[in-house]
Amino acid sequence: MIRYIIRRLLQTVLVLFLVMTLVFVILRVVGDPAKMMVTPDSSYEDLQNIRRILGLDQPIWKQYLNYLSDVLRGDFGSSYYFERPVIDLLKERLPATLKLGFISLAVSLPLALLFGVISAIKRNSLLDNAVTTFVVMGRSIPTFWFASLMVLIFSVQLKWLPASGYGETRQLIMPVIAMSSGMGASVTRLTRSAMLDVMRQDYITTARAKGAAETKVIIKHGLHNALLAVVTFVALQIGYMFAGSVVVESIFAIPGIGRLIVTAIKGYDFPLIQASTLIFALIFSIINCVADLCYTLIDPRISFRINK
């Protein structure tokens, strides 16, 4: 177990390093941040001056070494655009993104599990068809269109909910719905098929034959198995959830990290892009490590997943 954890940690460090390097390389191809920072009436000297101050006039290998040593010392630099430490910018915005993501998961997962299980048990019933339709809808609708439609209907026409903002619970309703629909749909589908798979297995038949109560069979064996699949799936899908968050944050004016990153990419804000990718990769790795540990803990049979 300890060896596994150490190995896992080493892998994580390697992945983080690779992400860092990859981003660094892509950014040097992206373009010249100095151009994004001058006002159009500046002179050529101003442009050179900016490049000098930012250290962009140095050879790339030197920039890379500087970057690496800074990161190792915990210094992520200052944003070109905001001229403030990148860490502060991220700290201000990370809570909103985490909160939105977390609430969306907390809302969508239980519902998805519930409906997934029910529709697997009552296969081909009216409810199953309804759930399946909802699932496919959820996976087929562009988030930003769905979100705009909600604003139009619930905020402008019905005046039930505030169109934007962050802080009050009411303001979170529409963003959470927009965020959860995609993830919820995928998880429902996953639960349903995982349940169907399990119910066909021999040991379920055996359990039934031994006269175990149907609910018990479902919960003990079926749900247990489905839960495993869902945990792995959700942990791996954090990246896709984040994509939804970028869009949802823009439409509902939520002060999250997604919008910050869009601004950063459009303005070629190297330090901000580098730091935020790294933070994301870190969060992702932690979640997946924990998910893996849960996995081995709950079902030693699957510990071969170490080698994936």
Partner: peptide
């Protein structure tokens, strides 16, 4: 290849896509 997959997973697709389009 497995590490490549890990890197890709740890890199939100929308993020990488935006970066690549910018590049």
């Amino acid at each position: 290849i497995s590490r490549m997959i890990d890197v890709m997973l740890a890199f939100p697709f929308i993020f990488l896509a935006m970066l690549l389009v910018a590049a």
